[in-house]
Structure formats: C-alpha cells, structure tokens
Amino acid sequence: MNIFTEGLQSAFQMLRSLDPDVLSITWRTIHVSTVATFISILIGIPIGTILALTRFRGRGVLVSLINFGMGLPPVVVGLATWLMLTRYGPLGMFNLLYTPTAIIMAQAVIASPIVAGFSLAAIQSLNPKMLLQIQALGTTRFQYLMLLLWEARLGILSAVIAGFGGVISEVGASMMVGGNIRGYTRVLTTATVLEVSKGKFELATALSIILLALTFVIVSLLSFLQQRKSAFR
C-alpha cells in the first residue's frame, strides 16, 4: 500500500515537473506503438478482408495460422526479429538492431495477426445477402470494399483497439530488439521492468500509472470513434 501511494505521488510529481526523461519515454512509447499499430492496420485489414471474401485452396491453413498468430508470445517474436536483424542475419546489413525501428517491426509482427483475425471475423459476420445487395447497387470493386468496411466498421475498430492493446502492453520484444537504451529505445514497459529490477518500486509504479493512463486515453479515443452515432454524414 505504501509503495502504491508513494508511486502515485511520484507519478504526479514527475508529470507535474515534466521530468524530461519520463516525457521522452512516454513520447517514444506513443510514437512506436502508434506507428506499429498503423502498419498492422495496413497489413492486417487487407489480409482479413481477402480471407473473408475469397475461397481458395490453403485458405483454411492460412486462417488457422492467423488465429495462431493472434496469440504469439512477444518474446518469441522478439527473438525471431532479433535473429533477422542481427549483424549476420538476413536483414543485418540495415543495422536496425537496437533502434526504435526494430521495436516497431517486432510490434507490427505482433499486432498484424490480431488486426487480421478480428477484421476477418468482423467481415465474415456480415449477412452474406448484404454483400449481394451491395453488389446489386452497381458498385465497382473499390466501392464494394468501402461499403463493406463501412458495414463492418465496429468490428474493424475493435480489431484496431486489440492490435494497439497488444503492442502497448508488450515488453519482451521491445527489450530484446530495442535493448532498452536510455534516451533512444527505452519505452514505458521496458523502463518499468528496469526500475523494478533496480528495486526502485515508486518509479516503477509511476511509470505503470503513466502507461495505464496513456492506454486509457488512446483506447477511449478509439472507442469514441467506434460508438459515435452518425459517422457517415
């Protein structure tokens, strides 16, 4: 209880005094996680849409792979990314290991199957006759997809929220491919782990509280977008 209240106090103190270290960690976390989520949207929504609308050999295997990917342990993704980016790995020549870009890559790998899986479910749960009706309106392929995504938009936004939740809370991959370098690749989760290992529980609690508040604000914004009434006007 003591630690918690002290953590709360120091969290407010750090925020009020605009502690530059904490601010930069917070900004980096926002930056890395939103970019990773954005990339996973670009990858996941098209994949989910294609899988929902087409039938081809091997589709079932792909769907199980996506579902499997939704539960990928971040540590495993981190290790795989590390192996790709390490000096002698296939992408070694880009020198990306221990950079924010490396964290973004690993997080995008974590979030893409989540976004794809939820988008797939959202589109598949539309009434199949609705799809026929949309075609009957005389839509081009592009117009068809836009109306389809519009009809599935609640589920699609849930996909985005889940993808963001997956990356903002993840620590293993960021630690492994980012290296938790102060002022460069340290994010809220890795900083918290570090402070705990140093026995600085107030600071760790403060960082966690900032992480929670940040997640809450962003998820609330997305939920507001999802739940507002007349988006098509």
Partner: peptide
C-alpha cells in the same frame, strides 16, 4: 458492372446500409 447498373433489385429481406434512410 455496366449491365448491373441498368438493373435494380429488391431482395426478400430489405438489406439497408447502416446509415440514414436518406443516405
């Protein structure tokens, strides 16, 4: 597609888009 745009269909269920009547 061009031919479809000369037709209009009313289905057994009225399948309306999730927006206003006017839209």
């Amino acid at each position: 597609l061009a031919a479809r745009r000369k037709l209009a269909v009313v289905f057994q269920e009225s399948l309306l888009l999730d927006t206003t009547v006017q839209k």
